[in-house]
C-alpha cells in the first residue's frame, strides 16, 4: 500500500475542512463550558448562602463576582504536594481521566438544531459509556494516593457508581423505545409532538434517571465518597493545588453533563413553548440553569444517606422501577 497515495488522496481538502469545522465547534463548546463551570461554583456558593441566610462570597469584586477567578489564581499558584509512597503515573492521570470522561460525553449533545460536535448514531450509548469511565478517575485517585481515607472513598465510590449506572441505563431505555433511535438529535425531534417532551409519558423513567444522576455525580444526598465528617475529603484527600482544582472542575462538568442528558432525553432539548428569535439555544440554557439550581437546592435541603440505605435504594427500588417502566412503555407501544 502506498502511504503517500493514501494521505494525498482526492477529497483530502473536504476532509480537512470537515475536521476544521469540528475543531472550531469543539473550541467554542469547551470555552463556553469552562465559563459555565467557573460561574457554577459562584452560583452554588451564592444560592446556598442565601438559603442559609448568609450572603456567600462578597469580598472580591461587586457582590463577589470575581471570586471564581481569584480562586483559580490561588489554586494555580499553590504548591503541588504528592504523597511520598504514591503511585505517581496513576496519581497524575486520575484527575485528567475524571475531567476527560465528562467533556467527551458533551461532544454528542445537540445544543440546537444542527449544532452538535459529533452527530453519531449511538449517541445515547456513547454518553453512557463515557459516564461509566468517570469511575476510573475516582478509583485510581483513591488507590494511588496510598492513604486510607482516599482508598475508602475510592472503594465506596466505585461500588456506588457501578450500582447506579445500571438504574441510569435502564431508565433511558424507555426513551430509546419511545424515540426509536439512539441518536440524540432524533430523540429531541421525536419529542416535538409531546407538549412536555418525554417528561410526561416517561415520568417514572425521569424520576429514576434524576436519582441516579445525583448518585453518579456524587452530589448530596449521595456524596458518600467524599463524606467529610468520615473520610476527610474522600478520594481526593491527598490532592492539592491544580490537581485538586481538576477534580473540582470534573464534578461540575459531570453535573452539567447529567443536566444536559436529562434535558435532551426528557425535557425536549432545545425546543420550548415558543421560539425565541436569534438565540436558538436559549431554551436549552434556561433549562440547564434550572436543573443546576435543582442540584444546589437539594444539597441545601436533604441530609446525606447512610451507605446501606444507598445500596438498597439503588438495587431494590430504582432498578425494579426502571424495569417496570420498560415493561409498561413496551405494552403501551404494542397495544
Amino acid at each position: 500500500m502506498n502511504v503517500f497515495a493514501e494521505i494525498f488522496r482526492p477529497g483530502i481538502m473536504d476532509f480537512l475542512i470537515q475536521t476544521g469545522i469540528v475543531l472550531v465547534k469543539a473550541v467554542i463548546v469547551v470555552g463556553v463550558l469552562m465559563l459555565h463551570v467557573t460561574y457554577a461554583t459562584y452560583f452554588e456558593r451564592k444560592s446556598i448562602g442565601h438559603m442559609q441566610v448568609r450572603l456567600g462570597p462578597m469580598a472580591v469584586g461587586p457582590h463577589g463576582l470575581l471570586q471564581p477567578i481569584a480562586d483559580f489564581i490561588k489554586l494555580f499558584f499553590k504548591e503541588d504536594i504528592i504523597p511520598a509512597q504514591a503511585d505517581k503515573p496513576i496519581f497524575f492521570v486520575a484527575p485528567v481521566i475524571s475531567i476527560f470522561a465528562g467533556m467527551t460525553a458533551i461532544s454528542v449533545i445537540p445544543f440546537f438544531n444542527g449544532f452538535v460536535i459529533a452527530n453519531i448514531n449511538i449517541g445515547l450509548l456513547f454518553v453512557l459509556a463515557m459516564s461509566s469511565l468517570g469511575a476510573y478517575g475516582i478509583i485510581m485517585a483513591g488507590w494511588s494516593s496510598n492513604s486510607k481515607y482516599s482508598f475508602l472513598g475510592g472503594l465506596r465510590s466505585s461500588a456506588q457508581v457501578v450500582s447506579y449506572e445500571i438504574a441510569m441505563g435502564l431508565s433511558l431505555v424507555g426513551v430509546m423505545m419511545m424515540a426509536g433511535s439512539l441518536n440524540l438529535t432524533d430523540i429531541v425531534k421525536a419529542q416535538e409532538q409531546y407538549p412536555l417532551g418525554f417528561f410526561w409519558p416517561q415520568a417514572l423513567g425521569f424520576f429514576v434517571f434524576l436519582v441516579a444522576a445525583f448518585a453518579e455525580t456524587n452530589r448530596t444526598p449521595f456524596d458518600l465518597p467524599e463524606a467529610e465528617s468520615e473520610l476527610v475529603a474522600g478520594y481526593f484527600t491527598e490532592y492539592s493545588g491544580m490537581r485538586f482544582a481538576l477534580f473540582y472542575v470534573a464534578e461540575y462538568i459531570g453535573m452539567i453533563m447529567m443536566s444536559l442528558i436529562a434535558i435532551t432525553c426528557f425535557l425536549g432539548g432545545w425546543n420550548g413553548p415558543f421560539a425565541i428569535p436569534y438565540v436558538p439555544f436559549a431554551w436549552l440554557l434556561i433549562k440547564l440553569y434550572c436543573f443546576i439550581f435543582l442540584f444546589y437546592w437539594v444539597r441545601a435541603t436533604v441530609p446525606r444517606y447512610r451507605y446501606d440505605q444507598l445500596m438498597s435504594l439503588g438495587w431494590k427500588i430504582l432498578i425494579p422501577l426502571a424495569l417496570l417502566n420498560i415493561v409498561v412503555t413496551g405494552l403501551v407501544k404494542v397495544l
Binding site: I122, L125, L128, A129, S132, L133
Partner: peptide, 11 residues
C-alpha cells in the same frame, strides 16, 4: 463498540 466500553471497560 459502545457495548465493549460499557460492559468490559465500564463494569
Amino acid at each position: 463498540a459502545a457495548i465493549q466500553i460499557i460492559v468490559y471497560a465500564g463494569a
